[in-house]
Design a protein around this nucleic acid. Structure first.
Lengths: 290, 290
DNA sequence: CATTGGATGTCGCGA
DNA sequence: TCGCGACGTCCAATG
């Protein structure tokens, strides 16, 4: 059996088991009545109650209650766990430096302590990231705009790396910022920073265009884009579940460029001033590409 | 005993225990060899390995491996957990809607299953938040600038709520954005948005000043502030550990206003153009206030 | 180390 | 519900 478990151990028994489990590099769960105190970047205190403490061999500590996804208290990987019996309580202390932070869990009673050898996460694969969206757009740049020519990804600028940089049919430089979800004001500002950086660096007389590519945009973000003469293109990320949604599959080379500012570039003159009403184009990475 | 535990149960035994634990509203831990699949906002897949599955009565599901603070896979609160035996494996499925997301954990073998009644987190108290910093500054507004007069907190604008709004000795409106940690470009942009909003709304001829208050600022953020004629004031948040750091305690009413742009307002003419070199002022909320 | 921005961010608050 | 911003965000990539 790979899981060692003790029920209602004395604090001293719990201490022995803990030391052994630390030694083996096991993942440890301790369930019992405890108080929790944290001091570091902030400070917090949690009164007596039943909670679950998770100790990982990489130095992570997590205190979980009956609700929420995030632990009520924690310590990041790289911390050092120590256990001791003090004042008739089992104290588990997790400490790290830079910044100096300490987590103290004092168990009045330990109801269960388990230790088990768990595997890593080397083989986790995730799809649907912004990088995936970018790759899909590189395959079908016309989704952004008919004739759009990608020149670089992660192009470095004074203001940080640009997701996607290219040229339009008029030869004008285009800065593209990609977001996998609906965007708010911060994304508009981010794009604005990149556009300003390119305008400073390239110093070309040709105005630099900025296009925010995302599934949708909030009103405030839309206004911000307009203020800065930036554009928005609605693109649904490749849906993982085989496109159960009602979005349109990309099948034309004409892109729905939605110029939010009248003065902005409007290649087809078909800007509808709408993004949520008109379904965004769906990018299927698995489609016959090239 | 409040913790129910079964070791190496058959899938059917595990299923019974699970149903009972769901019924009781217990927190459940399942340790065993399993695969994990997720599909929703993104999609992911994790091969066979030993992991710990946490199921909370509020609908949270967490899959933890031997490292990192974040679960390798999860489902947020409000999801619905279902268990079944399929193809000789124990399947725990957690589903939610809007957005539609499914987490499937397939156990080849269950090595341990525990269920326990855990407490809530109602009595958690945290200090050191941005709100704490704001309150401290309301007590001692001169830390921001000599003569600064706070007028409102969370003042609503077209661009969102302003942390702290007030007037300087010249009667000029001042937008203050607070950050509890070192700030980067996004904070500068955020302040810029708020200043622009006030300039639009108040329409006063008097230029609106913007001050970013934080422990320190990155180079890029500093440049951004300068570009927009915004200012920076270094203020250390009240340290939780009784101020073990080497920061200066606030004891004068003259604030270190660091005008980053030459054209910016410089009331005392003593801007040093320095923030990290000169230690930031420390705000002690517990000091004799008022 | 510090900087920067993505994330299945999560969470809380307010309209 | 959505929008918005804080968070002890966490985390990886990069200089």
């Amino acid at each position: 059996m790979t899981a060692t478990t003790v029920h209602e151990p004395t604090h001293r028994e719990a201490l022995w088991e803990l030391e052994d489990a630390f030694e083996r590099g096991d993942l440890i769960t301790i369930f019992g009545r405890c108080t929790v105190e944290y001091d570091g970047r902030a400070a917090s205190s949690l009164g007596l109650g039943r909670r679950l403490l998770l100790l990982k061999p990489d130095g992570t500590a997590l205190v979980h209650t009956d609700e929420k996804q995030k632990p009520v208290n924690w310590q990041p990987p790289g911390s050092e766990h120590h256990a001791a019996v003090r004042d008739g309580r089992l104290r588990v202390r997790s400490v790290r430096t830079s910044p100096d932070e300490t987590l103290d869990v004092h168990f009045e009673t330990v109801e269960q302590l388990s230790a088990m050898a768990v595997s890593g996460r080397r083989d986790l694969s995730v799809t649907g990231s912004e990088a995936d969206l970018r790759n899909a757009l590189l395959d079908r740049p016309a989704v952004i705009e008919s004739g759009f020519e990608p020149l670089a990804t992660e192009r470095p600028t004074d203001a940080g790396p640009i997701d996607l940089f290219g040229r339009d049919t008029d030869g004008r430089p285009v800065v593209v910022e990609l977001k996998r979800r609906r965007v708010g004001p911060s994304a508009a500002s981010q794009l604005q920073r990149y556009v300003a950086a390119i305008e400073r660096e390239d110093g070309d007389d040709a105005a630099v265009r900025g296009i925010l590519v995302a599934p949708s945009v909030t009103d405030r973000a839309r206004r911000l884009l307009a203020e800065h003469g930036l554009e928005f293109v609605a693109v649904e990320p490749p849906s993982s579940t085989g496109d159960a949604g009602g979005s349109t599959t990309l099948d034309t080379e004409l892109s729905q460029t939605d110029a939010v500012d009248d003065s902005a570039h409007d290649p087809a003159g078909d800007a509808t001033g709408d993004d949520d009403g008109e379904p965004a184009r769906t990018l299927s990475a698995d489609e016959e590409s090239h």
